[in-house]
Design a protein around this nucleic acid. Structure first.
Length: 779
DNA sequence: GATTATATGGTTTTT
DNA sequence: CCATATAATC
């Protein structure tokens, strides 16, 4: 019987797949073309290792690109084996698996196990604060640009010290007019550490530090992970490569699965070098190519092969399929982006009626998130239910992030980003100036913002503000004392009540207010669901029903994890988000120059080839029908912009295309081989240089209409505001900002007097005496 | 200090 | 066009 089941799972495999599954020990690289059954191979291989070879699931590490892929694999293995052993596998994304390990090893790195994980918004915000504190120009050191640079460095395993001493990197920064980038990097890293926080890249960078600086940790995990499997290998970066190399060095049972033709994440530091390097780093690598496609029609596969053949750099392979010829690809030209949306909506309607397709059979794919708008509108008008993946995720909504910020502080009060976010939300009278002052004190004393808050009375804060701060601190401390008595959900409810956030949102009866209220309720529901779903944990890990575990989980969620696969809706997403998915009917929109290939990515062959791989990924998502569309003109920044059809359209042979709606012609050492070389070389091994491409700025030719500008006034050094209770018409005064002037008129109620003052430099202003700081000069 | 009005500038792609 | 940053007003 046992054998019988085993036979079953091996039966459905073709020869190449079978080879990949049966290979037991030693390194193996599987080049898996689109739709070639790669997930099937991975899951069967793991099932086989467990059932045939008796490998302990606790000792198998499988790294996937999304959490959803991990969950799916687990499920499929359980089904194959007919038991629940698969739940013991160490399986997840690089980031979530390493976060889990880092939690239990945190003290080694000087962190506590409840460290916060910063998302990109948090990280950018830290960069911004640091830039400000260093008195650098924010225009010159744009948080986004600087952060991307830091991120690239980390992904190449270049730390702050190395960064600052690498002359090539220094030169590059100097040329980009950002010579202080290294100093910012250093300050940024220190600040994150002080805040008890790691950013996304740290989860890789610090994992590497852990393994290289602590031999006992390296040995522990090398022993533990007897078998290692990596999915989507073409999208790994140098940091991930090195970590795997270290972890796999003992058993060398490393199995990587990837497709160089689908490498689309170079902007995140991924490099196909990792595929090429793999067979050099290990001896006797078994190579398997999966070339039979089970997904698409012959027509679809043909054009995919044609398109990708325009790329120079790639591993030779030829995908084929036994599937039907299928219909021709439809190429559709429309006048505007709105028409494109309408065309897609109409086509969906028709396919549903004539060919009996249902909403979940359709996917609309595009290059940039902004393109979703015209599709949404058309679908809404046509009455087709749809769902958008990506864009601003649920957990990035302001009200949700605010609420989460409270939870973050309860877990880790050193988290300055979270503190700044909600110290005055809901408004409790702790203003910007007070906060800035206190942060400054914290920096001067080299302590945390929270420590300053708990001793705020020592810093000459005025009594009303001090009271507010004390109230806030007391409340947070109360939450912290409840942390161990309550589960995550009950604590979250307590936070919602005590802060009055829920009540405030409930009382906001505007449409947006209602949506915000619902979002917070949904957050609470998600926490509840989390506390009620059982899961596994082992050897001294953070209890994974904890609030900390919840926070870790949500910050590492990917767009693709947002499941609802079964939802009765048409799906809209970027091509990046569609990786690994398949749909009976696929629409790819916006096939226009400047959009796809994107204008930001046509400057080098490497960039252009990645755009083409992206197009390849889009095409190969389709099983039965494929629609490619482009608009003559589309709204961009509120203005209609003309575009040529994408150059990629010319690469599709006519014989496979139905152009009846295309409007005529389409165109007008330790074996660290990888890490050899200096920091500069490593950061440039992938594509790009870590700087986002900057388009030359074209300034509008018009001059903005004149606006009464305030002539800045610098008050005398001895400026002390006077008591203005008895201010009278005719008196001369000095205003902190508007300068010298004469009181022309007094009005307003006794408790809120308003003076009309004629300023020498800035004309007549109405000033509320309750707030203004005025010095009376003479009568 | 908080709320509201105006101005600027931004679009790749994401863990 | 939209979201966020800054300035004006209360």
């Amino acid at each position: 019987m046992y054998l019988c089941r085993m036979q079953n799972y091996l039966d459905g495999l073709n020869e190449a797949q079978r080879t990949a599954v049966l290979h037991k020990d030693g390194p193996i690289m599987i080049i898996a073309g689109a739709g070639s059954g790669k997930t099937k191979v991975l899951t069967t291989r793991i099932a086989h290792l467990m059932s045939k070879h008796g490998i302990d699931p606790f000792r198998i590490l499988a790294l996937t690109f999304t959490n959803k892929a991990a969950a799916e694999m687990k499920e499929r293995i359980e089904k194959t084996l007919g038991n629940t052993e698969a739940r013991n596998l160490y399986i997840g994304t690089f980031h979530s698996v390493f976060a889990r390990i880092l939690r239990s090893e945190a003290p080694k790195l000087g962190y506590t196990s409840n460290f916060t994980i910063y998302d990109t918004d948090d990280s950018r915000s830290v960069v911004k604060t640091v830039v400000k504190e260093m008195n650098l120009d924010e225009k010159q050191y744009k948080p986004n640009v600087v952060f991307n640079r830091i991120s690239s460095a980390k992904n190449a395993l270049v730390g702050p010290e190395e960064y600052r001493t690498d002359s090539m990197l220094q030169q590059e920064d100097a040329r980009a007019n950002r010579p202080q980038t290294g100093a910012i990097y250093d300050a940024y890293a220190k600040r994150c550490f002080k805040n008890g926080a790691m950013d996304f890249d740290d989860l890789l960078f610090k994992m590497y530090s852990l393994l290289t600086q602590f031999p006992e940790a390296l040995s522990k995990y090398q022993h533990k992970f007897q078998y290692i499997l990596i999915d989507e290998y073409q999208d790994t970066n140098p940091a991930q490569y090195e970590i795997i190399k270290l972890l796999g060095a003992m058993h060398e049972n490393v199995c990587v699965v990837g497709d160089d033709a689908q490498s689309i994440y170079s902007f995140r530091g991924a490099t196909i070098e990792n595929i090429l390097q793999f067979s050099k780093d290990y001896e006797d690598v078994v190579m398997v190519k999966l070339e039979q496609n089970y997904r698409s029609t012959k027509n679809i596969l043909h054009i995919a092969n044609e398109v990708i053949s325009n790329n120079k750099g790639q591993i030779q392979k030829k995908l084929f399929t036994d599937n039907d010829e299928g219909e021709k690809i439809k190429l559709v030209r429309t006048f505007t982006d709105n028409d494109e949306g309408k065309m897609v909506a109409d086509s969906i309607q028709e396919l549903k009626l004539r060919n009996h397709f249902f909403n979940p059979d359709f996917a609309i794919l595009y290059r940039t998130n902004a393109q979703s708008r015209s599709f949404e509108e058309a679908l809404r008008k046509t009455g087709i239910t749809y769902r958008i993946y990506g864009g601003i995720s649920f957990y990035q909504r302001k009200e949700v992030k605010d609420f989460i910020a409270y939870l973050r502080i309860v877990i880790n009060p050193q988290d300055e980003e979270a503190l700044k976010r909600i110290i005055n939300y809901p408004a409790r009278g702790i203003g910007k100036t007070s906060i800035e002052k206190l942060v400054l004190y914290a920096n001067e004393r080299n302590t945390s913002f929270w420590n300053i808050l708990t001793n705020a009375s020592m810093f000459g804060i005025k009594s009303a503000t001090l009271e507010a701060i004390d109230g806030f601190v007391t409340m947070i401390k109360m939450f912290q004392s409840e942390l161990h008595k309550k589960n995550a959900y009950d604590l979250a409810v307590l936070v919602g009540k005590s802060t009055q956030i829920v009540k405030e949102l409930f009382n906001d009866k505007t449409v947006e207010g209602l949506a915000r209220y619902e979002n917070v309720q949904e957050l609470l529901n998600s926490i509840k669901e989390f506390t009620e779903t059982p899961s596994n944990l082992e050897d001294g890990e953070v209890g994974d029903k904890s609030l900390a575990a919840y926070l870790q989980q949500i910050v590492l969620l990917t767009d693709a994890d947002d499941d609802k696969t079964n939802a009765d809706a048409v799906k809209l997403m970027t091509i990046h988000a569609a990786k690994g998915l398949e749909f009976p009917v696929v629409f790819v929109g916006g096939l226009e120059e400047t959009l796809f290939p994107n204008a930001m990515a046509v400057h080098t062959r490497e960039e252009l080839e990645e755009e083409r791989r992206l197009f390849y990924v889009a095409i190969t998502r389709a099983k039965k029908h494929l629609y490619l569309s482009y608009a003559n003109a589309r709204y961009r920044f509120g203005q209609l912009q003309q575009n040529d059809p994408s150059r990629f359209l010319e690469e599709i042979p006519d014989e496979f295309v139905d152009k009846s709606n295309a409007g005529g012609n389409a165109r007008n050492n330790g074996g660290h081989t990888q890490m050899q070389g200096n920091a500069f070389q490593r950061m440039h091994r992938g594509f790009g240089n870590g700087y986002a491409q900057e388009t030359p700025k074209s300034k509008p030719a018009y001059t903005s209409p004149a606006r009464p500008k305030v002539v800045e006034h610098t008050p005398n050094a001895d400026f002390v505001p006077s008591d203005t209770q008895h201010l009278a018409v005719g008196q001369k005064v000095e205003h902190q900002k508007f300068g010298f002037g004469k009181v022309m008129k007094m009005e307003g109620a006794a408790h809120n007097p308003i003076a009309t003052i004629q300023f020498e430099e800035n004309g007549e202003k109405k000033i509320m005496l309750n707030y203004a700081r005025l010095r009376i000069l003479e009568n």
